[in-house]
Design a protein around this nucleic acid. Structure first.
Length: 348
DNA sequence: AATCCGGGGCA
DNA sequence: TGCCCAGGATT
């Protein structure tokens, strides 16, 4: 059924479809982890344009690659991308491994990605199990085992292996994911057009909208980020984040994080500068309105406080002073680029 | 087994 | 808002 649907009704076009170069398949799969095709597409094209081969990617500077990844999120994917590219060039002479277990050993490659590479590039019979597959299987077989538990993962992984067309694994994997993305969608699935509805347990029992089941409900953490943008003679004070926290490897300005909201005004800013760092020569340029950024499990709110210093302070040794024209070469989190874009005086 | 890691789109 | 997206690493 799936294969026939794929042949006759699937018109989803993507540049990596039918691709046999494992480098390109791997790259597309890493980009698409927890990321919609529409969002990842431009990044994929940009990466292929900059780095047509894995050797070119492996030779690129970290910061250049992270800048290309800027805005896509889950930045550990980008760090692991480089680690793996360099390992393949050094250890495998640039030839991508074929073996499933070896693929799994690569940083950033888990069960899904290893199966995707093994099947798409080499047509090996490994079933991909992504969000689409969980959904299609749980609905079609009417299974309410929670997909975010170990029993659920085992159940659906086993099922995916059973239903996989061992003769055409690449086509089948492509078909089931496209089907999940365009027909058996998370919300408002197109059951009316679904060729499988007379065999679909969820459809027959009216449970389509209650499957798949997820157990955990994430709770959101609230954080307040107050960024002090210090400028001294055309140079801006920036810092590269390297704590175990969000946005690792990305740059930011001087950050004051608080648990509760702060009421900043001219007087409070000047007092804080003086009490904290003994700065008395600062010119307060602007205090922005409150900016917000919604992450999956954190809500970031905060303000940008722009200051001009007439003398270069000797504190904050680990920070860097960067001239304006270098600023746009650095990768920043969305929270910051969004603000910079709206304030052309700093941003561009 | 539980927690963490972004950002965008959509109802 | 809450949910989801071609998931994986870490603890």
């Amino acid at each position: 059924m799936l294969m026939k649907w794929h042949r006759l009704h699937n018109s989803r076009q993507m540049p990596w479809k039918g691709e046999k170069d494992p480098y390109k398949i791997w790259l597309s799969e890493i980009i698409l982890q927890q990321t919609r095709v529409e969002q990842g597409l431009a990044y994929y094209n940009r990466f292929i344009q900059h780095y047509p081969t894995i050797q070119q990617l492996a030779a690129a500077p970290d910061q250049e690659v992270l800048k290309l990844w800027e805005g896509l999120g889950y930045y550990s994917r980008c760090r692991n991308l480089l680690l793996t590219a360099r390992r393949i060039v050094k250890e495998y002479k640039g030839l991508f491994p074929r073996d499933y277990e070896t693929l799994l050993s690569l940083k950033g490659v888990g069960p899904y990605t290893a199966a995707a590479i093994a099947s798409f590039a080499y047509n090996q019979p490994y079933a991909v199990v992504d969000g689409n597959v969980f959904r299609v299987l749980s609905r079609f077989f009417g299974l309410d085992t929670a997909i975010d538990t170990l029993p659920g993962k085992k159940l659906f992984t086993g099922l995916a292996d059973e239903v996989l067309d061992k003769q055409y694994p690449a086509l089948f994997n492509q078909a089931i994911m496209d089907f999940g993305a365009t027909v058996c969608k998370p919300m408002a699935p197109a059951c009316i057009d679904c060729p499988a509805r007379k065999d679909c347990a969820a459809f027959l029992t009216g449970n389509v909208n209650r499957l798949p089941v997820k157990e955990k409900t994430l709770q959101r953490k609230h954080r307040w980020f107050y960024y002090f943008i210090f400028e001294h003679r055309g140079n801006w004070l920036v810092n590269q984040r390297n704590q175990r926290d969000i946005w690792q490897g990305l740059f930011e300005f001087y950050l004051l994080e608080t648990e509760a909201a702060c009421e900043w005004n001219d007087k409070k800013v000047m007092e804080w500068l003086h009490d904290q760092y003994g700065i008395a020569d600062a010119l307060l340029v602007n205090i922005s309105s409150v900016q917000t950024q919604q992450l999956t499990h954190q809500q970031i709110r905060g303000q940008f406080i722009e200051l001009k210093l007439s003398s270069k302070p000797d504190f904050l040794k680990s920070y860097q002073w960067q001239p304006k024209n270098r600023l746009k070469e650095l990768p920043f989190p969305r929270f910051i680029t969004q603000f910079l874009e709206e304030h052309a005086s700093i941003g561009s």
